[in-house]
Nucleic acid binder design. Structure first.
Lengths: 296, 296
DNA sequence: GTACCTTACGAGATACGTAACCATC
DNA sequence: GATGGTTACGTATCTCGTAAGGTAC
């Protein structure tokens, strides 16, 4: 009987309802049925009496539940203790962010440091051209990326930031007069290209391929870093939608950030390589899950 | 951390040697290494210090070992209790045997009944033409079959009987004079065919396709039951090698059983459908494993 | 007919072995 | 170079979800 089976058994023993048990454990109802059946086969006795109306524990099941509840609690405690020791071992997490987003995350990081003494976080820089490479190379433990992130080797954790978009334009751009920009305006200007290394779907979620009216949005020169983007914009060659956060702590000469009221909000989430999952990363993710996403 | 990982961890914590741990758990050394590495990743701390010369527990590992040892013991006890309740629930195992082999198994069955009050065994008859069908249909829980049994859906448990072969011949057969038979003699006589339903490799382990000198052994008519075999032999149409046990409690008119000194011993083992594995079957298998195979 | 548990089947994930590799004595 | 732990990679097994099938009210 593997740990997963114990969890399913205990949850069902508590809920006495296959559907609710499945929901609680985020698995299908069929899975619960299969898992219980397998255990009953192995043990050689029914653990639950069930009709389509009622689910009840048999005497054997009742006894097993008491025993396994104790085992499960002890096991969780043991693992938690080991994890705590692991986190406390002084590993520092390197978290990749765009621009100055790390500043906004301070409440989260402070909470994390408070909860797990001995742990720490340092920030690294990421850019739009290769959003995942630092994760995959192991240089970063976690990246804060806008969603969606649909990479099979990456895990998407809790959302930590949410906010609208702004359009970066040159100071002399005609749109500056109007004071705001809309998605439709993009078709009349050239936007920066994130290059071939950035996944298409991901780049498109920042700058769509077409406007809401279906006009094609022209892509211009490739920019690797945030700085290069700003240079292209300042020179008047391009405009570029960016997360609202870019406008907060940047006041670059020759550039104006215009709000884009019709652009849907974007969400930034913690993301890490699934196989590099470890106690410190999970601890950070747990901490983040307890916070509401920071609203810009 | 699944139960399997706990077992590997505890075994390594005890042995402090990857090779011995692997041997003890009947897995590869690489598997032990992988399992420990995965847990260390998840926990975020080393559990063992290791060079190619020495393996020692880290403080985190030492603590985890104490905790998990307790958890593991409690879990095993809980499952054993549930299984005992399952076996005691009065299920009767139906065990298929050839001829009177059940009689020889009495010591084993008595021990099983003694160890697991409430359990019981009844015997059913099996034959060479369809050795596995009663298992697959669910009619029998366990069959006692001669080895090898190489069916992917069947589990082969402990060997319970071992013994030589005899050749059944008609009373007037020339070999009777000699008093014994050899494998070479088979080429000069026709043997019974188990029919197309019996797996080739399995039938061949009782009656090889060729003699040791390479002469082909001619197959005669198909016989379904043990009785039909004896009829064919008595009529002089065929001879037939059989397990020594066949000669013990059969004294059929017109048939003589001749020892076959050059035929290797055969082993009979408990066999069951892997998916129908349950507590009662495992209890019988455990009991059998504590006995030496009964020597005929 | 509706709520709800079970079974059948296929796809994806995981466990595991083999073999090559690397480190220590 | 012998012993012993690690890594890479392919395969078999298992887990789990979807969808269809029962069964009790």
């Amino acid at each position: 009987m593997e740990l997963r089976d114990i969890e399913i058994f205990l949850a069902l023993a508590e809920e006495l309802h296959f559907g609710r048990t499945a929901e609680r454990l985020h698995v299908s109802q069929a899975r619960v049925s299969q898992a219980i059946r397998t255990q009953e086969r192995r043990i050689g006795a029914a653990l639950f009496e069930r009709t389509s109306r009622r689910v009840t524990l048999t005497p054997v099941g009742r006894r097993l539940r008491e025993d396994l509840q104790q085992v499960h609690d002890l096991l969780q405690a043991a693992l938690a203790r080991a994890e705590a020791a692991g986190i406390g071992a002084g590993r520092t997490l390197k978290v990749g962010v765009f621009g100055h987003a790390g500043y906004e995350l301070r409440p989260l990081i402070d909470a994390f440091r408070g909860r797990y003494p001995g742990s720490d976080v340092v920030f690294g820089e990421i850019n739009g051209t290769e959003p995942f490479s630092a994760l995959r190379s192991g240089e970063h433990d976690v990246n804060v990326l806008w969603l969606p992130v649909l990479e099979p080797d990456l895990t998407v954790g809790p959302t930590v930031l949410t906010g609208g978009r702004v359009l970066a334009v040159a100071a002399g751009h005609p749109l500056v007069e109007r004071g705001t920009a809309s998605l439709e305006d993009l078709a009349d200007n050239m936007v920066v290209d994130f290059g071939p290394d950035a996944p298409e779907y991901w780049a498109a979620s920042m700058v769509p391929v077409r406007t809401p009216l279906g006009r094609r949005i022209p892509r211009g020169p490739i920019a690797r870093t945030f700085h290069e983007i700003l240079s292209l914009v300042a020179s008047g060659q391009c405009v570029q939608p960016l997360g609202e956060i870019a406008a907060r702590y940047n006041n670059p000469p020759g550039i104006v950030f215009l709000p884009m009221p019709d652009a849907p909000d974007m969400n930034w989430a913690l993301t890490w390589r699934s196989t590099a999952d470890n106690a410190a990363i999970r601890a950070l993710a747990r901490t983040a899950a307890d916070f509401e996403p920071i609203q810009l």
